[in-house]
Write a protein that binds this DNA or RNA. Structure first.
Lengths: 190, 190, 190, 190
DNA sequence: TATGAATGAGAGTTCATTCAT
DNA sequence: AATGAATGAACTCTCATTCAT
């Protein structure tokens, strides 16, 4: 049931935003009484936290997979491809994440998970681009991060018809990355 | 006074989001009674609309300036540079815009201004990249749009220390653009 | 101007009721600024009072006309016919009066004008019916008053198609009244 | 509790009118928090509707009872007597009904219940008076309806001391009606 | 485990009214 | 004479939350 509630909350929050979605709405989505949510989560904020805790593994997956690769060019490709796959798979969670991007207060209660992840990503990009031999890797890391984030956001806003794989492929090429040995999804091009 | 209220509303909405900011909060920001807002705007939504109407000129400026340039490479540079300048100048308005990106319902009441702007931007990018001679200009237009949008969003979230001009410069270079003849701001590097 | 405002207020109050009609609405009806009303009347309640003061003469007219007649049967007919004429002529004022019937608090501020008028009417009816020789004139006075009031109310609610003169004629006949020598209106039957 | 709230609402609305009575006032009458009302009724208007739905049976009772009688004279007496009883028993509900008479907008939301009832009553009166053999039954029906309505309204406004049964008795006699076999209330004269 | 009952706080909005001009 | 600016109080309604069962 706890998982059932989490899924319902994810759907509801992704659609209406955290602050814009009432507990009543979440409960309706899960087809339970609102009070039941307080049996599993002490508050609305705790529900959001649990949501992040549940999905943190899938968020970190591209990072871990990247570590298993040696060539920095391929590392870059792996990171971006797997991230794209994660976005396509966990559409609602990414939607929620992008929505929360602007809620400093809510994010603070998440224990800096997002901010730390961002910094880690920028750091990793900088290291990769340095290894690849790009000029001004710090600036390019910011650009790469911005590009990835912006593309993902556009995708989650209107996924239908968006050629995510092609765009990410072009992004990889732009920064000297190499396609990973194993394609992230059976359908290489969407 | 109407302008005073609009500025207060912009500040408040940029900080707390449209739905997350109460009329009372806006009134407090403007140091007036909440009821006064209804003297100038018939509703909270109308206030938001007036905010967009007020800033629409500054949003469209980069577009118009681009039209005055001939070389497509320079057009690209002009568009991005001026947009960056607009973001730096109208920080709060861009914050608000990015926040609203996820509120389809609110956006609908804005008369498709934002959606139309996005489509126009993608169309312009596609035309420019085609003229420049880039391969797969449609895909690159999406990438360029995502990159610009993502970079701007990262900037408005934490402007301090973000080398926006350098990142935008790199973005221009990546897509074969040329720096405009006249630098958009006296300080070439931020 | 004062009269202009009073007319506008009468129209507005008759249509929306006293409590249900805002000062703003009255001002809009008069095409002036709401604040102007406070130049001529100290408060909304005073405006209502002035309305009654202005129309009191026309309300009392049937009473005075009745006094000029000798035969009690004809007195009854005169009173009812002239009242009907007053209702048809001052439609909005009667509408307002009927609406206010239920607002004890507002009526109290009118100085018991309405309650006194009601009592006077019942007293007059009792005297007339006694003079005519009806049995149980007190009870019949209440019935007559109720009938007159109810008929008038139905008429002011939906005047179109209501045969007011015919109904009042029947009412007069029921209680032994006689038609007045001079018909109240050129059109004896509506 | 739902019934408790309905009773409180009926009392409050009858005393202050629908629009003139705040939800807070109703809640105070029921000694609960205002928000609780929204647990049982989705809106103030729905509360009013529920009030009518609850009392509709008692309103229609005189009609049904009339159908069980054969003689048209007795039918008339039955209808009026039972209506009077209903008024005396459901004083607050009749007060509310008479107050709402003037609020066309609110009435519209009630699904034409009142307007339809009025038309049905006039139609029934016309048929009865025709059967009894009265002249001009259409006009007399309007008079009878107006008389009944006016008398009831006067009664509900100030019930103390009003000889309702006597007045209704006289009204019945005026239109050739006959007293029903079974007196509506043990106390023949009020 | 799961629910309905219940509430305080706060949302957007309207209103009668005052005041300076 | 006439207006726009300004406000405190009140309105309907929603929300996150608690509690008894």
């Amino acid at each position: 049931m706890r998982d059932h509630l989490l899924h319902a909350a994810l759907r509801a929050f992704a659609a209406g935003g955290y602050e814009g979605t009432s507990i009543k709405r979440v409960a309706a989505e899960a087809k339970v009484a609102p009070a039941l949510l307080y049996h599993y989560f002490p508050s609305k904020e705790a529900l959001l936290l649990a949501l992040f805790a549940q999905n943190q593994a899938q968020i970190s997956a591209p990072f871990l997979a990247m570590a298993a690769v040696e060539d920095p060019r391929e590392q870059l490709g792996t990171l971006l491809r797997l991230s794209a796959t994660s976005v396509k798979t966990n559409l609602d969670f990414w939607r929620l994440t992008h929505r929360l991007r602007h809620h400093a207060d809510v994010l603070a209660s998440l224990g800096d998970g997002v901010a730390a992840w961002n910094q880690a990503l920028i750091g990793a990009f900088t290291a990769l681009l340095t290894a690849i031999g790009r000029p001004t890797p710090e600036v390019e890391a910011l650009l790469l991060f911005g590009a990835m984030d912006g593309v993902f956001q556009h995708y989650v806003l209107v996924p239908e018809g968006y050629p995510l794989d092609a765009v990410i492929g072009t992004l990889i090429a732009h920064f000297g990355g190499a396609e990973p040995a194993l394609p992230p999804t059976p359908t290489a091009a969407s």
